[in-house]
Amino acid sequence: MRVAEKIKHDGGMPAAVPAQPSAEASVPAGMRRRRAVNREGLEAGKRSTRTILWILLAASLVLYGFPFLYLLLTSFKPPIDTIAVPPTILPKEWTLVNYVNALGRSGVVASIINSTQTAIISTLLSLLLAVPAAYGITRYKTASGRVFIMAALVTRMVPPVAIGIPLASMMASAGLADTPIALSIAHTTISLPLSIWLMASFFEAVPQDLEEAATVDGCSRLGALWRVVIPVVSGGIAVTAIFAFLASWNEFLFALLMTAIRSQTTPVVIANFQTQFGLDWGSMTALAAVYSIPVILLTLLLQRKIVAGMTLGAVKG
């Protein structure tokens, strides 16, 4: 318990790693100048390197951000402007009519509830299975463990469409047809291998000395896992949870094959705006924008944990 508290006090980083500002302050000015010259990445000493890197960063931002920005702007255009030839980026007139149409369509609210239920159950299932599996593999380092983790990776290589139809039949046979639980289980098959791999890398980064210290303090193996290791890798768990949640939240194919009236999720409803007879761009983009909000909020809420999780591997050893 004391170990965990100490770790938490240090911001989730093992005690052996000194805090960055104090380390910087103790370096003489001349050495700091030399370090500045040797800096890499966006803080590189050479102006030309910095400029190139900033340009690349800006280009990447545009590449990834523009489609979403265009979607967002389209959602505020009057219907006729959404199909303008040539297309315009900014709406000539801002309107909420697409949001009214999209959210007023029957089944949309129910689909958002279904998506939320499905993603939460799938995320919990993934974590529930991935955390002990990854812990066992990293701590017991057996041959079967290595085979298991490789096998988990192999399942990621199977095209989802190949298992979608058998899964749908199995769920129907089990009486789970058209339920969020069936879809959650299907989504777990997608997120679980990645979750195990992610959690295994996070557990690898936690020094075994911490658990030994906990056992010296009287913890059992499971107690050390629960009280020491899991708080240390909480950032990693957040990262894994985000990935599992997103995998389920945005999944389309299994939702298409396994849901009908009760449990249809929003990605299928969004796709329904494209019909054989045309595409309702305005309503489609409006619903897609609304559907993006929860995951954006979730990411912002868990941002600190995610950054901590991403850098967890850096403290190994």
């Binding site: 239920q117 129907a172 058209d178 639980i181 849901t259 009760r262 796709a271 329904n272």
Partner: peptide, 28 residues
């Protein structure tokens, strides 16, 4: 959800009763 096993969209889609009918249709 585990307790109820239901979705928010409406009645069950399988094993529809004789007084109801499920129609699969393209969105348009």
């Amino acid at each position: 959800l585990v307790a109820t096993g239901c979705g928010a969209g409406g009645p069950a889609s399988s094993g529809s009763a004789a007084s109801s009918v499920n129609v699969l249709v393209e969105a348009g």
